[in-house]
Design a protein around this nucleic acid. Structure first.
Length: 112
DNA sequence: CGCGTTTGACCAGCGC
DNA sequence: GCGCTGGTCAAACGCG
């Protein structure tokens, strides 16, 4: 709780700076992974940029973003309300860069 | 030293 | 017309 944020110099554009992404033509791929860890390294680096509680779910939802340059892929991780051991990972966008060296992603073709 | 993580607050659109 | 929700950003701190 960093209360008293030294004067939020935010430009004022809270969230919807642009028109609501009316056209999210980018298909969203949702994957259900049975794992108690939400930080499964799928071969890419992710940076958490937000977290909000989800109704219908006693667990909060985490928002992740690819930190790789030229890669604006977003990923949201949410826990199943029925099976806390199930993690629902939704990928938004596609990676247009090779996986980070040293990190050999599991050649697991997504079910799409 | 750099990176990643965490929290609060803000804005716009929609529903009734 | 008003209220509410969802989604995103920024800053600061800690650790290796």
């Amino acid at each position: 709780m960093r209360a008293l944020r030294a004067c939020r110099s935010r430009k004022g554009g809270g969230g919807k700076g642009k028109k609501a992404q009316k056209r999210q033509r980018e298909p969203r791929f949702a994957f259900m992974t049975k794992s108690d860890i939400e930080h499964l390294d799928d071969g890419y680096r992710w940076r958490k940029y937000g977290q909000k509680p989800v109704k219908d779910s006693p667990f909060p939802r985490s928002y992740y973003r690819c930190t790789t340059a030229s890669c604006g892929v977003k990923k949201r991780v949410e826990r199943s309300s029925a099976d806390p051991t199930i993690v629902v990972t939704t990928y938004e966008g596609q990676h247009n860069h090779s996986s980070p060296a040293g990190h050999q992603p599991r050649r697991q073709a997504p079910p799409r």
